[in-house]
């Protein structure tokens, strides 16, 4: 564990708490893509079910349980408790365009051709693009509540912090994980446009609005 990874994980944790806070206090999931949230459930289940056969640390296991549990709970809130506030007509990204390529990529790029490793690769590839339905929705509506942008910023910062973590691990431990690094760089890249607007507008107290 190093500081970059710890702060990255905490940022990931914070993003989920911010999202839960937004939904609970506004009693609404307006502006949140159900498809992105469903993809995160798939990502966490595919990757973290290894907690039944691989023990790393209490920290690692507790985080895995939290990510699976909280993502399922968010899906429940969107699908049942606050269903009327969820508008599927603006959540139109076709997720099969993400699922199918990620499935193919995971069959080609994995560290061992066995179900658990293929699932791990699949989850890494899927996570890197899971935010696209959400960003697509943002692009369509052209604006977002400040709290939604804080959620997205924390989520983007999480993966961005993993990059210095990998560089640090390369020099201190000599390990490199080409699948995670490639997908992680792609994932962080997807946030660059968003980050630009977030840091130049939202953090200056302006509304998050995309140019028409």
């Amino acid at each position: 564990m190093n500081l970059f990874r710890l702060l990255g994980d905490l940022s990931h944790l914070a993003s989920i708490l911010v999202l839960l806070h937004k939904i609970q206090t506004s009693r609404s999931c307006r502006g949140i893509s159900f498809k992105t949230q469903a993809l995160y459930v798939a990502v966490f289940v595919a990757r973290y079910l290894d907690l039944f056969w691989r023990y790393i640390s209490l920290y690692n296991s507790a985080m895995k349980v939290f990510f699976i549990g909280s993502s399922c709970y968010i899906l429940y809130l969107m699908k049942y408790r606050y269903r009327p506030t969820n508008d599927p007509s603006i959540d139109t990204f076709r997720i099969e365009y993400l699922l199918v390529p990620c499935a193919i990529l995971s069959l080609i790029f994995n560290y061992n051709f066995m179900p658990t490793e293929i699932l791990w690769s699949f989850s890494i590839f899927l996570e890197s693009v899971a935010i696209l339905p959400q960003l697509f929705m943002l692009q369509r509506t052209g604006e977002a509540e400040a709290i939604t942008t804080h959620y997205l910023a924390a989520l983007g910062i999480y993966r961005a912090l993993y990059i210095p973590n990998w560089i640090y691990r390369y020099f201190t431990e000599g390990v490199i994980d080409p699948i995670a690094v490639t997908a992680g760089i792609v994932q962080t890249g997807l946030y660059l446009d968003f980050f630009y607007v977030y840091f130049t507008k939202v953090l200056q107290g302006q509304k998050f609005e995309l140019p028409a």
Partner: peptide
């Protein structure tokens, strides 16, 4: 470097 097979990251 070699790839970590332990998947110790989240």
């Amino acid at each position: 470097g070699s790839p970590p097979s332990s998947h110790d990251e989240l």
